[in-house]
Amino acid sequence: MIFNHYAAKLSDLDMQIVNCVPPGGNWKDIPETIPSQRLAQIRESYKAGKGSRSTYYGRLRPEMPAYTINTYFNRPGNGCNMHYEQNRTLSQREAARLQTFPDSFEFKGSITAVNKQIGNAVPVLLAYQIAEQIPFKGQFVDLFCGAGGLALGFVWSGWKPVIANDIDKNAIETHKANIGGLTICGDINEENVFNTIVNTALKAKQEHPDLPLFVLGGPPCQGFSTANTRRGVSDMRNWLFKSYAKIVKAINPDGFVFENVKGITNLDGGRFFEVVKTELETCVDKIKINKVNAADFGIPQRRDRVIIIGGDKQLVDKFTLVPITGVYKEGQIGILPQIIGVKEALKDLPIIAHAEDGSKKEYIYEASNPFQRLMRGKIQPKEYLDSYK
């Protein structure tokens, strides 16, 4: 069983479009004879100098990592979401792999719910490397937990879950099924939800005084995302960092990890990010801002993120995320090894058509590289990362 290996159903028009785009191509490869109002709008926008829209209706290059996996990876016109070879968009399992969720990880809920969980997740392997840079193992509270990308990375590193919270019932079901530990579904600002999280965390600290406690979480990032053209400080989702900080203050953990999109740093000319930093600085001795791209950390996806670590001065000063891979175009030479491309990451998965569920199909062949072996549970994360040394 290969969970969630389902490819979205495409319209006849979308299939005409997909058949025209070569690997590495985009909307510019689509003939104007194909009737599409959206394509006409993209062409007009391009002519008006409003950006190249280079990833729209894009097909992945087999030798390169994917672009950012978002919640619309099932739509050919919403990014570079076409399979590098097969005439369809990425399947849910393929997108999950590019987020470094292992094939054994089953997402719960409707097709739309699963797409949302995958696109909003923190790459598991990035979370693992964050956890590995903390000089101890402990227990954690997972806020705005989603499907559990941050949580699974910390579990891989030897940490234990205490309680997880999200307002999305499908994400909570996924988290519960794959991570374990207590969960509570509901608005973090509701008194009963807030109290349950805090009381459970305080009880865990009391019962396991030898285990350090961290708070993990990334408040919803849609309001910060550069993909959101209407983003701004008036978007109420942008203020959920205060709820995160309120719980951190109530629990008084040994530290926290705060994850979000790169767009959080330039909202309102950067003034909003100063507010976020000031609020988080009131929770701990010190914080450190880390700007990372997932493709620099052994993940076959170009995904820019901001990671804020908070805790005592000694812990924060020593925390460092060191890139192990790079992204190089043809002819370029770099110091670090090239990150694997999408073909090497995905080619062992069953071939499927659009609208097909290949969950019950068999792998095409045995895992042929360390990434495939990691995704299929044949090796541990450290062994995969060490393969780049």
Rank of each mutant, 00 (worst) to 15 (best):
D14Q: 14
Q16K: 15
Q16H: 12
C20Y: 04
P23G: 09
K28A: 01
Q37N: 12
R38I: 05
L39N: 00
Q41W: 10
S45Q: 15
K47L: 14
Y56K: 08
L60T: 00
F73T: 04
N78Q: 14
N87D: 06
R88E: 10
A96L: 04
F101N: 01
D103F: 08
N120A: 13
A121S: 15
V124I: 12
A131S: 14
F136A: 14
Q139L: 00
G148F: 05
G149N: 03
D168Y: 11
L182H: 10
C185P: 08
T196V: 12
K205S: 07
P212W: 04
P220K: 06
G232F: 02
W239P: 09
L240G: 07
F241E: 09
K249R: 15
A250V: 02
I251M: 12
P253A: 04
N260R: 07
T265K: 06
G270H: 02
V276G: 06
L280R: 08
E281K: 11
N290S: 08
K291N: 07
A294E: 11
G298D: 00
I299L: 07
P300R: 02
Q301H: 02
R302P: 01
T320K: 13
Y328K: 14
P337G: 09
Q338L: 06
I339G: 04
E344W: 13
I351N: 14
H354F: 10
E356D: 06
E356T: 11
G358C: 07
E366F: 07
A367W: 01
N369L: 07
Q380E: 15
D386K: 12
